[in-house]
Design a protein around this nucleic acid. Structure first.
Length: 785
RNA sequence: GCUCGGGUGGCGAAACUGGCAAACGCAGGGGACUUAAAAUCCCCAGGGGGAUCUCCCCCGUGUGGGUUCGAAUCCCACCCCGAGCACCA
């Protein structure tokens, strides 16, 4: 199962970046097919979603009309680039036969208690006029509208409990047997899940208990005040009558501030005291309780113990409001009373001070000891926190699968019965979102008002559609089973093809699509629908194609459309050029200057094939190397190349594979070594990169069947072992000469040969050899005094 | 700030596990072919210096140190570029 990320057909067509990614994946698929595997390489279209809808709004055409048009163009380009796609299994997420099952998935998660609804502060993009997932908010701005600040709104939203799976999602990343992934992608997921070890500590405050999470329990003695998030539920009960007005004003101001600017880290600290005091369980001292918006309700417990001596944010807050700073860490020999200019970080030689019986311990020991001490008193315990949020899937937009829920006055939210799926998206003429926060779907009265499936009384439909990432979180499950309309994925097909053997795609989806897909697979496995929990056995992130050092984007005007290049140079030359540009996993800078290199190479191969087709058959790919009718050097090069190219294709090192084939051709030409067998082997090795060209060559070489049905060439080790080898001679580590010795010569023999070598002798200059280092068959280093 | 990548000729890059730095290609120079140009083919090509000119020396993989017989590769410190995360307690 050779999977690549299906495109969203929103723009004018595929750009060079898509072609690059798909070509790299297609080379992989074709290689494995030539190795004798049955390769499934499907293609489809991620055609729902905000990208597509915004494009439709911009162009002024209904997406229901525009998207099929775009898809037709994409299909044309995909055929042109020569991908080995199985079009019988094409899918589009906008097809009711597909999104029926997207809705079905929602119902399965709902049944399993993994979907829930809550009123939540959400990211609202005033430009998209919809809620964004946290993943779609980049540095406080909408990912699709740079410069547009995302604001805060409170809406009832559907969420998926991805946080229940934080530990498993994290742990599996280290399990190579389950998932062999690009390092960078796994790393991005680790960051996103954001695991922190620490302690939960209870502070008593006038009959109430404030729980905090801290990663630094060792600094407990330095906690001189506490801070609650403005939304913290305890705020109301803790606030003293004298402070009520101040606190209320602050809370209202915080609520009006959008989520985004709340999270900008370098803002001036603001906050107000509640008037209440809590007791530091370590010191027994009363410490004031404040509220401030630098503490976030969404993380940890929404409350912190503030340790201004050893946390920079707390230090800034204490400085702004004149709160006491106590240091509880000091370097060896440093005076525990020295005042701090800024928060002091824990270092290896730092020891606890001002911390009673824990004085003298380092931060780690102290943290463990204090946590244990708290646990004995029932005031704390070691715990783990994750940065991951639950996945908000509600979108107040038109172009998506309606969430299959019906609201009834009597029964509440009722799932649409599975036999009534799909809930079809009504064909709305005016599908534009407005500021109301209500999806455009509410405007279609006939669609909106339905009888309750439970009691039959008048009810109304959920008007939100689901996030595009839900569509794409399971498309790989659908591909093998596209012809079944009575099940989302056929069990036998699924067992035959899944998990995906190779998935190649961009790292921009490292924490969105790739995390959601994993989560969904885990849930489906628990529910007994799947036999695996990790959907992608191998994932490789390809690099980015940039232009003039910058990422291609419409706003920069540096997007390269592949069509003209394919028209001018041919799809195969273009594929070869892209794969030759640099390491596939690193990407590269698109320059049209270099494209003539691969073209010249293919032209020369064409000439060589012409000669070989007319010439005598010789040893090579399939034939036994009977008569060396061509120079032995050429044959050796051939077998070396087969081995090199095979290894490089396994590891996606396409650029060096192409370079090796170029070297081979250069050697063949140099020795005028024309051989049918060698030509055949070379053509088969070229087939993954230049499939149309290889097909023509194959026919020219006298074959009546497709080159894709040929066998991958093998190499003969007998050509790889040489009877004489060249050994580099170094004197004091500098290369001075080289000598040719019989393969397997021992150190003594090579040493003698080196000493007999005239060029070497000049550098020895009569001095005695103090030491001799010999790397067998490679190098000898003579150290002279 | 934290976490990952990366920095090698004019350019894209290569270099197995510490063992000939620059393979392969682009651009460039010279030559052959041609009335000419394009295409094609052959040769040259990291920098500097020397020479008895089919030869030799020195320098050279972001910077500075270190380990080693030997470092693009390993270690320490720093600089720069890219990506992810970020008032995450």
């Amino acid at each position: 199962y050779n999977l690549m990320m299906f495109p969203y057909p929103s723009a004018e067509g595929l750009h060079v970046g898509n072609i690059y990614a798909f070509t790299g994946a297609d080379v992989n698929g074709r290689y494995h097919r030539l190795r004798g595997k049955t390769v499934f390489e499907p293609m489809g279209f991620d055609a729902f979603g905000i990208h597509s809808e915004n494009h439709a709004i911009k162009v002024g055409v209904h997406p229901g009309e525009l998207i099929p048009r775009n898809i037709a163009n994409f299909r044309r380009q995909l055929r042109q680039m020569g991908g080995m796609f199985d079009w019988r299994h094409e899918l589009s997420t906008t097809d009711p036969a597909y999104y029926k099952w997207t809705q079905w998935l929602f119902l399965q998660l709902l049944k399993a208690g993994k979907a829930y609804k809550k009123q939540a502060a959400v990211n609202w993009c005033p430009e998209c006029k919809t809620v964004l997932a946290n993943e779609q908010v980049i540095a406080g701005e909408c990912e699709r509208h740079p410069g547009v600040a995302v604001s805060q709104r409170f809406l009832e939203q559907w969420f998926f409990r991805i946080t229940d799976y934080a530990e498993r999602l994290l742990a599996n990343l280290d399990d190579r047997a389950k998932m062999d992934w690009s390092h960078s992608t796994a790393m991005a997921q680790r960051n996103w899940i954001g695991r922190s070890e620490g302690a939960e500590i209870a502070f008593e405050a006038g009959g109430e208990t404030i729980r905090v999470f801290t990663t630094r329990p060792d600094t407990l003695f330095g906690a001189t005040f506490m801070v609650l998030a403005p939304e913290h539920p305890l705020t109301e009960r803790l606030t003293t009558p004298a402070q009520r007005k101040t606190v209320e004003a602050y809370r209202q101001r915080a609520a009006a501030t959008d989520l985004v600017s709340r999270r900008v880290g370098d803002r001036e600290k603001t906050g107000v005291p509640t008037g209440a005091h809590a007791v530091n369980p370590a010191t027994g001292e009363p410490i004031p309780v404040w509220i401030a918006d630098y503490v976030l309700m969404e993380y940890g417990t929404g409350a912190i113990m503030a340790v201004p001596g050893h946390d920079q944010r707390d230090f800034e807050f204490a400085s702004a409001f004149g709160l006491p700073v106590v240091r509880v860490l000091a370097a060896e020999g440093e005076d525990a009373g020295t005042p701090l200019e800024e928060a002091l970080e824990a270092t290896d030689d730092a020891r606890l001070v001002n911390s009673g019986q824990f004085d003298g311990m380092n931060a780690d020991e102290g943290g463990r000891a204090i946590t244990a001490w708290l646990a004995e008193r029932g005031a704390g315990r070691a715990t783990v926190q994750y940065r991951l949020y639950d996945w908000c899937i509600s979108r107040q937009r038109y172009w998506g699968p309606p969430i299959p829920i019906i609201y009834c006055e009597a029964c509440g939210p009722v799932p649409v019965p599975e036999e009534d799926l799909p809930v079809l998206l009504p064909p709305l003429a005016d599908f534009r979102p407005d500021d109301s926060g209500v999806s455009p779907l509410a405007r279609d009265a006939a669609w909106y008002h339905v009888p309750c499936p439970g009691c039959g009384r008048p009810a109304r439909r959920e008007t939100d559609v689901s996030d595009t990432f839900l569509d794409s979180a399971w498309y790989y499950l659908r591909y093998p089973s596209t012809e079944f309309d009575d099940r989302p994925f056929d069990p036998a097909r699924t067992r035959r093809w899944l998990p995906v053997a190779s998935y190649i795609g961009g790292n921009e989806h490292a924490v969105l699509h790739l995390l959601y897909s994993r989560f969904l697979a885990m849930v489906l496995q628990e529910l007994g629908h799947l036999h695996f929990e990790e959907p992608f056995a191998r994932f490789r992130a390809h690099g980015l194609i940039v232009k003039d050092g910058a990422k291609m984007s419409k706003s920069r005007g540096n997007v390269v459309i592949p069509d003209e290049y394919i028209a001018q140079w041919g799809a195969d030359t273009f594929r070869m050029y892209l794969m030759f540009l640099g390491p596939f996993e690193e990407g590269g800078d698109f320059r049209d200057a270099g494209i003539s290199g691969p073209r010249r190479f293919l032209d020369r191969v064409w000439d060589y094939v012409g000669q070989a087709a007319g010439g005598p058959a010789g040893p090579g790919a399939s034939a036994a190397p009977a008569e060396p009718i061509v120079a032995r050097e050429a044959l050796v090069k051939y077998h070396q190349t087969v081995k090199k190219v095979t290894g490089d294709l396994e590891s996606l090192n396409y650029n060096t594979a192409i370079a090796a084939m170029m070297e081979l051709l250069n050697t063949l030409r140099e020795h005028e070594a024309v051989s049918l067998g060698v030509a055949e082997g070379l053509v088969v090795m070229l087939a993954p990169f230049a499939p149309h060209f290889a097909e023509e060559c194959w026919e020219r070489l006298g074959h009546g069947t497709s080159v894709m049905d040929a066998a991958w060439p093998g190499w003969d080790e007998q050509f790889l072992v040489q009877d004489r080898v060249e050994v580099v001679v170094q004197v004091n580590g500098k290369t001075r000469s080289r000598v040719t010795v019989p393969a397997g010569a021992d150190e003594e023999a090579v040493g003698r040969a080196a000493l007999a070598d005239e060029a070497t002798r000049r550098f020895l200059d009569g001095k005695t050899v103090r030491k001799r280092i010999y790397v067998p068959g490679r190098l000898i280093n003579l150290v002279v005094g």
